[in-house]
Design a binder for these strands. Structure first.
Length: 1061
RNA sequence: GCCGAGGUGGUGGAAUUGGUAGACACGGAGGACUUAAAAUCCUUUGCCUUCGGGCGUGCGGGUUCAAUUCCCGCCCUCGGCACCA
């Protein structure tokens, strides 16, 4: 066999290709479709590692395949040359970052050439070239003019070790992505792209892209769109420095007045109520007959729609079917269903408020108002009786005098003593029913005191749990805290807490999830759903940047609130009956908090039984606390976040969570809002080695863009770029002088540089027209190539570069600069090459493979092919580098080469057939980037050719396919062994011939009861009947079918025979 | 916890619409060549076996003549998000 000296062969052909300029890519070739294959460009770190080979050499196989398949393929390369690592390395070595970077680029270009990659170097770009960043700056200015980038004071992620600001995407778990030191929050003036304005588009347009679902999903989650409601909670300020104002609600019943007054006396407001009987509604006598309860129970059950929950009694002796029942609750539920208000409680509250405000406007005038409430009763015969009641309240305050109001009250209970149904309100009922009224009055009071417009806006995805709100939490950073400083009674305590929080780094705040907080004494909020007054706290588990920075806390339905509420002893009110799922398919109950009683119920049980026991334990408790409006007792304060149907929620009870979210949001004047996790993209960097921000400031400090004729706005070179926390550009005399000369005295330059992700957000356009100095890329050229057909890159850029560049194109599109809305049609994340030990390659582990060394030993062709063979390129997995595997691939290349020595006149028929089958398989596999199986089928073919012999025709077909993987050896065989003229890489990809693949006979597996027992060789055109007859006769089969009936004989044409006995 | 992708020999992986599970390669075992080693070549290699066969694609069920593939329930690994209301 010929000796294979990879070094020599590769050098020879690399020079040949260069000399003949075979990789030059024209913008347009007659009769060929353009195909833009892009691999993320290189960072000029100074050395090419295995990852680079995987990133560039393997996609090169695809680019070559496409080119041979008749496409005009653009597969360019460039350098992402600005940025921190280059600068840090330069500082460490006492060099200029520019010299260091450009030297690295020069060296890396040579290394890249050693791959045998088909880059068109005439299109190379370097983002640090002024010819390049001129256009980065130009685009920046266009965005500035359209308000897509603005200057804002914002909390920035500051890395004290790198002395610069980091983007959110560069902070990993509270630490700097680059140096792993802790990131602190610092208030800074920053130029920020309004990427959030494009958040919806960035999510919605993902659906139009042919990307792997996991990449799309990662972007969706990063953007983090949540749809929910924004609801206002009015704030009640205690007004410690104001005179108390009294509102008196009068009644004509002395004893009741005293009792209710005591109950409701709060915050300088005195409210008293009248009971229905005092308003001319007498108790209705209902003849006691045995069927009444049954009747009512049936109605109540229908109403509640619990099928797996019996309605249990807990305080009466009424027994039906051996089950004790509670007639009070039963009847109340039934009435709730039939009860027909003309107005909702919220509307009533609103009316009272409007009414009262009108009075204020009239300065104490007296207005009469009333409305009716309808009553309903279930009679023994099932009939429903409805009556009306007219109620009144008199409001009085010291400023506005006495006002008469009418409002409804309702209640009904069954008295065992009298055996009659009585209309009477319990104290709790009065409280509950009056809450909207009280709430309205308190808002009013607050208004009168001058604090009326204060409200807390909360964001919630669970507006259905509003009736379960028992407190409100603000983020410590919430502006209202500072605003209400004077009104907060425990300011010292609050201030101490704020300091404590400020001291905590974001990292600590993320890691330490124990909840802390302090109440804002003297401040309360009103739950707009039920008018209840709830305490306001600040706590650092509420994040300032998400939603509105304020949360309505629902301990019974939110795990975090539950933890906080247990710690600080705040009440739990259960208002959503969790849904157990579809009938007959109930799911495990998930709860947290003091849920031991639920877990205990399920202890020792399994499967559905356990699930049922736990659900029932919860149902039992909810039944017990129904009377208390769902307030959970100590020891059983648990939370459950499941959705379901509302309970203990006034007029909204029985609604589903989904219905209630809409209904409550609308009724309470809230709005449906979307909120995003994505933050605006702050790009100011206090470092030297980056694209200068093309802005200058007038003597008043107002920013102005540098006019286009002065672009590129060059990076000054007279700068000591050692970082000290101030921007190095501030130290440039040249830049200062340049600014004053061009704009006038007192004008100053912007001294921050841009994040490097800005440079890489549009680089793919520049490859199309790299030397154009009129425009960043000509429209015609963009039309020929964009959008990119296939983009190869690393998974680490999913939520950074990939998102930024999508935003960039959308922004350019929005202001009419480009036509496309998306840059990349198809995206492929590559996997990771691990060290031979299966761990990530790292110097400390000593498992780093240096590709230069391997190439020196076995050649670039082997390394390329090995990387393609190591695992499926279309699935991003982690593949360990196996030095033995490399040798195996090298052996394969040698065998292909060796075949050239033993060529026959013609190939045997079997080899011809296999060759065409292999062409089909390889073509299909490469097209979907399953390069590993493409190679293995070529290996199979080569094995057959070695054993059976091969002629020139088939050998040439093999070598053409092979040359995409091993371009140097492919060329060597093509020109030197086969004596062809011109490069193999300009030849056509082989086409398979279906006719050549036809086999005259084929071998079928024969199964008996699904197990393979024999093989049967038949002619390709055998009919089903013939095959079946042959099978029955098959000698090897007799022992399996002897003495048994053949029940069925299945023949799948050309595939398999199955005998069922 | 939520979302996504997966789980196949000693290893990387293959099986394109349900149709012979383990292609191809590495590693192992045996042999040839050699003074020897490397390299190369040949044979063999899922597990168990009483040599008839049986069992095998994370686990348990189901559908089917036939399941790595489809359905139901669980377990595990990797990736993304996560005190996100």
């Amino acid at each position: 066999m010929k000796h294979y000296d990879a070094q020599e062969v590769e050098k020879k052909w690399q020079e040949y290709w260069k000399k003949h300029n075979i990789y030059r890519t024209e913008d347009k070739v007659e009769g060929k479709e353009n195909f833009y294959a892009l691999s993320e460009f290189a960072y000029p770190s100074g050395n090419l590692h295995v990852g680079h080979w995987y990133a560039f050499a393997v996609p090169d196989i695809y680019a070559r395949f496409k080119r041979m398949s008749g496409y005009n393929v653009l597969y360019p390369m460039g350098f992402d040359a600005f940025g921190l690592p280059a600068e840090n390395a330069a500082i460490k070595r006492g060099l200029d970052p520019k010299d260091w970077t450009y030297k690295n680029i020069e060296y890396m270009r040579k290394q890249l050439d050693s791959m045998g990659a088909s880059f068109d170097w005439e299109r190379m770009i370097i983002t640090a070239d002024p010819e390049y960043y001129k256009w980065t700056q130009w685009m920046f200015i266009q965005f500035y003019k359209h308000g897509i980038i603005t200057r804002v004071k914002t909390k920035a992620n500051w890395c004290d070790s790198c002395k610069t600001v980091l983007a959110n995407e560069q902070v990993i778990g509270g630490k700097c992505e680059r140096c792993d030191s802790e990131v602190v929050q610092k208030d800074m003036m920053q130029w920020a792209f309004k990427i959030t304005d494009f958040a919806d588009e960035l999510i919605d347009d993902l659906d139009t892209l042919d990307w792997d679902e996991s990449i799309k999903q990662a972007q969706r989650e990063w953007i983090g769109r949540k749809e929910g409601s924004e609801i206002s909670f009015p704030v009640v300020v205690n007004g410690k420095d104001k005179e108390p104002v009294k509102i008196l609600i009068a009644t004509n019943n002395k004893s009741k007045k005293a009792r209710v007054q005591k109950l409701l006396e709060k915050n300088n407001i005195v409210v008293d109520l009248v009971s229905p009987s005092e308003l001319g509604i007498e108790n209705i006598d209902v003849a006691e007959e045995g069927t009444l309860e049954e009747n009512a129970i049936a109605k109540a059950q229908a109403y509640r729609e619990y099928t797996n929950l019996p309605i249990l009694a807990n305080d009466t002796s009424l027994v039906i079917d051996g089950v004790e029942l509670d007639p009070v609750r039963v009847k109340r539920n039934a009435l709730g269903h039939l009860d027909e208000h003309d107005l909702s409680q919220e509307e009533i509250a609103q009316k009272i408020l409007d009414f009262y405000i009108d009075i204020i406007k009239e300065k104490g005038g007296k207005v009469d108002g009333y409305w009716y409430e309808k009553w309903a009763l279930v009679m023994p015969d099932g009939a429903t009786h409805i009556s009306e009641a007219k109620r009144n309240i008199v409001l009085t305050d010291e400023i506005h005098g006495e006002v008469d109001l009418y409002f409804p009250l309702r209640s009904l209970y069954y008295s065992q003593d009298t055996g009659k149904y009585h209309h009477e309100a319990t104290e709790e009922d009065y409280l509950l029913e009056m809450q909207p009224v009280v709430s309205a009055l308190k808002q009013l009071l607050n208004f009168v005191r001058g604090g009326g417009e204060t409200e807390i806006k909360v964001f919630t995805t669970r507006a259905d749990t509003l009736f379960g709100v028992t407190y409100v939490v603000l983020a410590p950073e919430h502006p209202l805290v500072e605003k209400l400083k004077d009104r907060i009674e425990n300011w010292e305590e609050v201030e101490a807490y704020l300091k404590e929080v400020e001291k905590k780094s974001d990292l600590e705040r993320q890691q330490d999830k124990t909840k802390t907080g302090v109440p804002l004494k003297g401040i309360t909020a009103i739950n707009p759903a039920n008018g209840e007054e709830v305490p306001v706290w600040i706590a650092d588990y509420v994040l300032p940047h998400f939603g509105t920075g304020a949360v309505m806390a629902v301990p019974a339905h939110d795990e975090r609130d539950a933890e906080f509420a247990i710690k600080y002893d705040l009440p739990f009110r259960f208002v959503v009956l969790p849904s157990a799922g579809e009938v007959g398919n109930s799911r495990p109950l998930v709860t947290s908090g003091e849920n031991e009683f639920i877990l205990k119920a399920g202890e020792g049980k399994k499967g559905q039984e356990k699930i049922n026991a736990e659900w029932n334990a919860m149902y039992d408790l909810l039944n017990e606390v129904h009377e208390q409006g769902g307030v959970l007792p100590k020891g059983k304060r648990f939370s459950c976040a499941f959705e379901g149907k509302l309970i203990n929620s006034g007029a909204y009870s029985r609604m589903t969570s989904q219905e209630a979210r809409d209904a409550l949001t609308e009724a309470l004047g809230g709005k449906k809002v979307k909120t995003y996790r994505l933050r605006d993209w702050a790009i100011s960097r206090q470092r030297y080695w980056g694209t200068p921000i093309p802005m200058v400031y007038d003597p008043e400090g107002n920013p102005h863009p540098v006019p286009e004729e002065h672009l590129p706005w060059t990076l000054p070179e007279d700068v000591d770029h050692t970082p000290d926390g101030t921007a190095p550009l501030a130290r440039s005399e040249e830049l200062k002088k340049r600014t004053e000369e061009l704009f006038g005295e007192g004008w100053t330059p912007e001294i921050d540089t841009m994040d490097t992700f800005v440079d890489s957000s549009w680089y793919f356009y520049r490859y199309l027209d790299p030397h154009n100095d009129e425009v960043f890329a000509g429209l015609e050229k963009r039309r020929l190539w964009m959008p990119i057909d296939l983009y190869f890159g690393g998974a680490e850029h999913t939520t950074m570069h990939l998102l930024y560049s999508r935003f960039w194109v959308k922004a350019l599109h929005k202001i009419g600069i480009v036509e496309e809305r998306e840059p990349y049609k198809q995206r492929l994340n590559r996997g990771l090459i691990l060290g031979p030990d299966g761990a990530k390659m790292s110097k400390s582990k000593g498992n780093v493979i240096n590709p230069d060394e391997v190439v020196a030993q076995v050649g670039a062709d082997t390394v390329r092919m090995y990387l393609a063979f190591i695992g499926p390129f279309n699935e991003p997995g982690n593949y360990p580098w196996d030095p033995n595997g490399v040798v195996g691939v090298r052996r394969f290349i040698e065998r292909v080469y060796g075949l050239g020595d033993v060529l026959k006149e013609t190939s045997p028929e079997a080899v011809v057939k296999l060759t065409h089958k292999t062409i089909k398989k390889v073509t299909e596999d490469v097209e979907r980037l399953k390069l590993n199986t493409a190679i293995s089928s070529m290996m199979t073919l080569v094995n057959a050719m070695e054993k059976q012999g091969v002629g020139k025709t088939e050998y040439e077909l093999l070598v053409k396919m092979f040359s995409a993987f091993a371009p140097h050896m492919g060329e060597e065989i093509w020109q030197e062994v086969l004596g062809n003229e011109g490069s193999i890489h300009l030849s056509d990809w082989p086409k398979y011939d279906e006719a050549m693949m036809q086999e005259s006979e084929l071998t079928l597996p024969v199964q008996v009861n699904g197990k393979v027992r024999a093989q049967l060789t038949i002619s390709a055109d055998a009919t089903e009947e013939e095959v079946k007859n042959l099978v029955r006769e098959l000698p090897e089969l007799q022992k399996w079918i002897e003495g048994k009936d053949i029940k069925k004989l299945i023949y799948v044409k050309g595939k398999i025979v199955n005998v069922v006995v």
